[in-house]
């Protein structure tokens, strides 16, 4: 089944016609897919996330989430049970001052019995590797840990689709890696559908597919590597290649015959290969 599909979706904040935050969006995400959504600030990425679980309703068009019509308010609760959204700032997502109470918030809202909530907390905390912090105070954790708790809070509801709305934007590189590892594991091991909204190009590289958004429209779509091979086009949308890709490009411009690569390991091998050949 399709996890999320958008058909001709338009959305605008405020009432004035014409100024659309999202303009005629068509997309579909299959179950179990890991899809990255890229774009600069104000490109409509976050609006996209909020449309998926009924926080916003589109001006026109059709959104279907796991076979349910997301525009129908009667489905909203069921959709929210199945689509978890992790937001940008972990501090503004925690409702309780003890980790376990915070993780329990979602399961409590859907009216689960106590024993089941206990099991869900165990499951969610172990899924993000934070079992040891069950009784900790979120305020005293690191950014990466806080965001993992926020993910656990969403996982405890056991959604089928996980949307991360720039959830790594406020984290340091280490925190970003922590969150990324957790999300990748959830996708690979638990077959969770992931919609990963980010402006870090390195992170998009790990996705199965990527969408690039610009001024409320999807302007590029395809495998991340394919998208990154169109560096000039990316630049017109104020996005740049991952650092390694940029180095590669510069090297090629200087006439150094490295193949295009995006990961540090690949680049190291390429340079080694070229250097070796030039010596001989």
């Amino acid at each position: 089944m399709r996890a999320v599909s958008f058909e001709n979706v338009c959305f605008s904040y405020g009432n004035e016609e014409g100024a659309f935050s999202l303009n005629n969006i068509n997309l579909s995400v299959e179950e179990g897919e890991f899809v990255a959504v890229l774009g600069q600030n104000g490109s409509g990425k976050s609006t996209l996330a909020r449309l998926c679980n009924g926080l916003l309703t589109p001006r026109s068009g059709k959104i279907t989430v796991l076979g349910m019509d997301a525009c129908d308010a009667a489905n909203t609760f069921e959709i929210r049970k199945n689509v978890g959204v992790v937001f940008q700032n972990p501090d503004n997502q925690t409702v309780a001052s003890i980790v376990e109470d915070d993780v329990a918030f979602g399961p409590e809202n859907i009216g689960l019995p106590r024993e089941e909530i206990g099991r869900r907390i165990d499951f969610a905390l172990s899924a993000v590797g934070m079992e040891a912090y069950r009784n900790a105070t979120p305020a005293r954790l690191s950014g990466g840990q806080k965001q993992r708790i926020a993910i656990a809070g969403v996982l405890a509801v056991m959604p089928k689709v996980l949307i991360l709305d720039e959830s790594t934007a406020m984290l340091d590189p280490r925190g970003r890696k922590e969150v990324m590892d957790v999300v990748l594991r959830l996708n690979k091991e638990k077959k969770m559908t992931v919609l990963f909204i980010t402006h870090f190009m390195e992170e998009a590289l790990l996705a199965d597919r990527a969408f690039v958004m610009h001024r409320g429209e999807i302007v590029m779509r395809g495998a991340p590597r394919e998208i990154f091979s169109r560096a000039d086009e990316l630049e017109t949308y104020s996005l740049s290649l991952p650092a390694v890709g940029q180095i590669c490009r510069k090297l090629r411009q200087k006439g150094f015959p490295v193949a295009e690569c995006l990961q540090p390991e690949e680049l190291a091998k390429e340079i080694e290969r070229c250097a070796f050949r030039q010596n001989i």
Binding site: R50, N53, L55, F77, R80, K81, G84, V85, F87, N92, Q93, V95, E100, D101, A104, F105, G106, P107, E108, N109, I110, G111, L112, P113, R114, I117, G118, I121, A150, G153, V154, V157
Partner: peptide, 18 residues
């Protein structure tokens, strides 16, 4: 938003863990 996204509706059917 985060609370709503986590299924908070303010309804009476809410249960308690503790």
């Amino acid at each position: 938003d985060a609370m709503e996204a986590r299924c908070y509706t303010g309804s009476q059917t809410r249960t308690r863990y503790k």
